[in-house]
């Protein structure tokens, strides 16, 4: 399920025109074959039909509702997962005891392919929005825990000694020392968490109860054999995923520089 591009995002090659050769050729072949009747238009609909389908869905208002529902689900799940993730990660990073007892189990549970949680979560939470949000939160939580733990644990020793000299309280240690030192790592975790959350949102919409959402749109398109709708949905998924990744990367970059 996860196809996570590098968080920093690769730079497109300078010779853009060469990069355009393949997509343009593919699109031209697609358009030609569907126009000349070489391909079954049910499988490869002409491009303008997809555009028209997009326009129609947008004007009918369903597309916006679906998009909004998906984004809301994505963000509330991410918010929940990130909060739990930072808290758990901090505890695991600071407390040796918690680390020893919990980390092996966390690492074990992490091995279960994320989508494999869907049946159990559905059985535990039923058809409510809650089930979907919990699944998204679980997805977002995992990279946040790992990166927070790593960051908190890796506070530089000299800094800790400074803290000791200044007789920092536990809270001061946490707020002034460990968390700031861990910030870059936490931000990386949050960035990855955002990407995972978006993937999980799609997964939840595929496998859990029917509701508005881009994933639901794609599934409905498949059932109706509506290829334009499916392709439109895929396009939107890709674009939103890309935008989320870029935005998170930008924020991360800014925060670290400022930090």
């Amino acid at each position: 399920m996860t196809d996570v591009a590098a968080p920093n995002g690769p730079r497109i090659a300078p010779s853009v025109h060469r990069g355009l050769v393949l997509p343009v050729a593919l699109l031209a072949a697609w358009e030609l074959s569907s126009r000349l009747g070489l391909a079954d238009p049910r499988f490869l609909p002409p491009l303008e039909i997809i555009a028209r389908s997009g326009w129609h869905e947008m004007m009918e208002g369903r597309l916006w509702g679906d998009l909004l529902a998906s984004l809301r689900r994505d963000l509330s799940g991410f918010g929940l997962g990130a909060t739990i993730g930072i808290a758990l990660g901090t505890v695991l990073g600071l407390s040796r005891l918690a680390d020893r007892i919990l980390t092996p189990w966390f690492n074990g549970l992490k091995q279960i392919a994320l989508v494999a949680w869907i049946p159990l979560i559905s059985m535990w939470f039923g058809f409510d929005e809650a089930a979907k949000v919990v699944f998204v939160a679980l997805a977002a939580c995992i990279p946040v825990v790992l990166n927070t733990q790593e960051g908190v644990r890796a506070a530089p020793l000299p800094l800790i000694e400074v803290g000791r000299t200044l007789r920092f309280s536990r809270t001061q240690f946490l707020l002034r020392l460990h968390l700031p030192a861990a910030l870059p790592s936490i931000l990386t975790g949050l960035h990855l968490g955002l990407i995972y959350a978006w993937l999980a949102t799609v997964g939840a919409e595929y496998f859990m109860a029917v509701g508005p959402g881009i994933g639901g749109l794609i599934i409905a398109g498949r059932e109706r054999f509506d290829m334009p709708l499916v392709l439109l949905g895929i396009l939107i998924l890709g674009c939103i995923g890309f935008a989320i990744d870029r935005m998170a990367g930008w924020i991360e970059h800014r925060l670290i520089r400022w930090h």
């Binding site: 559905s122 059985m123 039923g126 058809f127 409510d128 109860a209």
Partner: peptide, 8 residues
């Protein structure tokens, strides 16, 4: 799916 909802 109804069973899941009843269970919850």
């Amino acid at each position: 799916a109804v069973n899941e909802a009843i269970a919850n």
